[in-house]
Design a protein around this nucleic acid. Structure first.
Length: 421
DNA sequence: TCTGGGGTCCTAGGACCC
DNA sequence: TCTGGGGTCCTAGGACCC
């Protein structure tokens, strides 16, 4: 059996933990740049605020209904996520952290009289230890555990904990589960299946395997088998190393001149390098992209990328920044207003498995020692306490974050401020 | 005025190899 | 006139997830 635990309205719940006056009030959390709604409390959902709507479109509505609005605070959500995961890890030796707010637990060999009681116990302890409400679904496959979780949330009498432990329950759940709510069935396949009169998960399990494979590929076939109770997906307790690492942001304001864009690209490149070092890997390929604001139909549009094959796989901030700025030189044109840039590194290899170059002129050991110290200092004193000069100080490219809550758990100045209050 | 960010997997088709 | 069989690698595009 597998358990799927996810945090209810995670970002909104995080904001509430350290600010209980928000309890019972509608809350929304916005994407970077305070752009779109990406999380809603139950009260906000009840008001009909949709996922993904641009914030500016619902501004009057927010005022009328006194909806509490927050900018994304990933320092806070990341730290709260760790607390939840640490708690969950006490319930099983096998845990797959699936996303910032979700985890699967493996329950192989568990001899438990009541899985439902176990699910309720997980909910209770999680809330007690972290203040975050969670929902639990347990079933024989990951896809069914997801379904169980969904059903547990949908019907209030189940109180967010549901177990599929019999054939009758499995059939009943599938008949109550809309096809678009199945894990692995997205917008396109959802539309396609509905057009073929497959409206529920149950209908989907009745389709022939060859038809499913033909139209939804082997991925869809796996989903179908999992719904039937045949496990096709294992627990991934060790996160696989990433094949690509991307850091990109929209700018707070559109930028025309090169310097602030170069500052931004330097910062993204530096983050890429830090992420590489964190997973003890190096990248051999680098791509930089820029584009204008596609929503501004009144302005000339421009989007380009440039990629560079690096002579030696690297995770040095200095080196990656240097190449990223070189790439930016190739694509920057002064006649446009830019809204977004990004850096992607790929062809990633383990740090200790780098193919060196006979004509390499860099003292890589020295850079590695320097960056090791930089990482240590930034870990202790906060991101970018020490940085590369080209990352700049002006931050004209920075995000719009007008409604940011304090970093209640990770920033000592904020912690003291909150304590004094 | 204002519209997010970061990933993975699969398939088809073309180019190439012997 | 007749024109094999078995592969790999790469890329673009499309689907999905949170």
């Amino acid at each position: 059996m597998y358990a799927l635990i996810d945090c209810n309205n995670f970002y909104a719940s995080c904001e509430r933990v350290f600010n209980p006056s928000l309890n019972g009030k509608p809350i929304v959390v916005l994407s970077n740049n305070d752009g779109c709604v990406i999380a809603r409390s139950n009260e906000a959902k009840a008001l009909g605020i949709k996922m993904g709507v641009p914030a500016f479109q619902i501004e009057p509505f927010i005022k009328t209904h006194q909806v509490q609005v927050f900018s994304s605070n990933y320092a806070l959500y990341g730290d709260m996520s760790q607390r939840v995961m640490n708690t969950l890890a006490t319930f099983s030796p096998d845990i797959e952290i699936y996303s910032i707010d979700e985890a699967f637990l493996g329950m192989k060999g568990f001899d438990i009289p009541s899985l439902t009681d176990y699910a309720k116990q997980i909910k209770k302890i999680c809330f007690k230890h972290t203040g975050i409400p969670v929902s639990v679904g347990i079933a024989a496959t990951k896809t069914l555990a997801k379904a169980a979780n969904k059903i547990g949330k949908k019907y209030p009498q189940l109180a967010g904990a549901f177990v599929i432990d019999s054939e009758e329950k499995r059939i009943k759940v599938l008949k109550h589960l809309e096809i678009s709510d199945v894990w692995g069935i997205g917008r396109q396949y959802g539309k396609f299946l509905i057009a073929h009169n497959i409206l529920t998960a149950y209908d989907f399990t009745m389709a022939t395997e060859s038809w499913v494979k033909k139209h939804l590929s082997v991925v869809g076939l796996r989903t179908q088998k999992e719904l039937k109770g045949l496990p096709c997906m294992d627990l991934e307790t060790q996160p696989p190393h990433k094949q690509n690492i991307c850091v990109s942001r929209s700018f707070g304001n559109m930028l025309n001149s090169k310097e602030p864009i170069a500052d931004a690209v330097s910062n993204y490149a530096s983050r890429c390098a830090a992420k590489l070092r964190y997973q003890k890997a190096c990248a051999t390929h680098l791509l930089v992209f820029v584009h204008t604001n596609p929503f501004r139909k009144d302005l000339p549009q421009y989007a380009r990328s440039y990629s560079i094959q690096l002579p030696v796989a690297t995770n040095s901030s200095m080196e990656i920044i240097q190449y990223a700025l070189l790439a930016l030189d190739k694509i920057y044109k002064p006649d446009f207003y830019y809204k977004k840039a990004g850096v992607i590194v790929s062809e990633i290899v383990p740090e200790n498995n780098v193919q060196h170059n006979l004509f390499d002129h860099l003292d890589r050991d020295k850079q590695k020692r320097a960056l090791g110290i930089l990482d240590k200092m930034n870990l202790r004193y906060g991101r970018d306490t020490v940085k590369i000069a080209s990352q700049g100080f002006a931050k004209r490219w920075k995000l719009k974050q007008e409604k940011l809550s304090p970093n209640y758990t990770t920033n000592w100045q904020d912690i003291i401020q909150v304590a004094i209050k």
